[in-house]
């Protein structure tokens, strides 16, 4: 039995004639302890896919199975790191993490929770900033708080939705290493959604491209046969890396071209009006 299974998952937004199928026929299996990366263009439905797996959205048809059970709701077993950090701005770093820990361990006493918060904040090297609010932190620091918050709940699986997308290259590299470190310590299952092929190759065991939506579907998978721990500088000279990278980029370029040739027709923009003040 696969750890996570998506069988013919389709997701449609809207109803009737307005309906747009964002994802169609998504099939994916992940084994326990695996690190899978899904790469795709922006707007190809990556976030929708993540929300289906973490239980924020329900598939229109098909099923999402987690350890053999259909996903019907969010769960503490699947920790999520959101694209835009989603920290609560009125809480400090410590309070943000504490809120999550308290939900994950409702029966533990306060000193246990406090220690766990301190540990995980220390793990992402933010102890000096524990009493600061998100607005006072840089983008990289905020994302580290989000990582600490997700991991402090001790999830079995980590789902990351373009977690490093908004960061500069240097911070990004550091955080990649930090995430890999944490992952390798107790071999949690990890799903990374990204738009950066290099990031996928550096971090994952398998890379699956997502063909752009509407009607996005998963492409053929690419196995990354590079020994861990991987060395970022040495990676560039690794023939295996070059080969896989070229293959993936070629594939993505091809479907990009395909999409261009398909979408010649003009789309009418929806009529949007400002929201009513009361209703």
């Amino acid at each position: 039995m696969a750890y996570l299974e998506l069988n013919n998952v389709c997701k449609t937004y809207g109803e009737g004639e307005e309906a747009t199928e964002v994802l169609s026929n998504i099939n994916l299996t992940m084994e326990e302890g695996e690190f899978v990366a899904i790469v795709g263009f922006t707007g190809s439905g990556k976030t929708t896919l993540v929300n289906l797996i973490n239980g924020l959205l329900m598939p229109t048809s098909g099923e999402v199975l987690f350890k053999g059970q259909p996903v019907t709701d969010t769960s503490h077993e699947r920790g999520v790191i959101f694209q835009n950090y989603s920290l609560l701005p009125w809480l400090t770093v410590g309070q943000n993490v504490y809120m999550a820990v308290k939900e994950a361990y409702p029966k533990e006493n306060k000193s246990f929770l406090k220690k766990r918060v301190d540990d995980y904040v220390a793990m992402v090297n933010l102890s000096p900033a524990i009493n600061k609010r998100p607005k006072e932190l840089s983008g990289g620091m905020r994302q580290r708080v989000a990582v600490a918050r997700a991991l402090a709940m001790n999830p079995e699986m980590i789902i990351m939705d373009e977690p490093l997308g908004a960061l500069d290259a240097l911070t990004r590299g550091n955080l990649q290493d930090e995430i890999l470190n944490i992952w390798s310590q107790d071999k949690r299952t990890a799903l990374l959604i990204t738009n950066d092929v290099d990031e996928g190759i550096y971090m994952a065991d398998r890379i699956i491209p997502l063909k752009p939506g509407p009607n996005a579907t998963l492409g053929p998978e690419f196995k990354i046969d590079i020994e861990r721990p991987r060395d970022k500088t040495a990676l560039n000279d690794n023939p295996n890396f070059k080969k896989t990278r070229n293959a993936i980029i070629e594939y993505l370029m091809d479907i990009g071209e395909e999409r261009k040739s398909v979408s010649q027709e003009e789309y009418a923009l929806p009529e949007l009006a400002p929201k009513s003040f009361v209703a």
Partner: peptide, 11 residues
């Protein structure tokens, strides 16, 4: 986003 956080944390 905040609502999603609340859901994911299962508040």
């Amino acid at each position: 986003d905040y609502i999603n956080v609340a859901k994911v944390l299962k508040l």
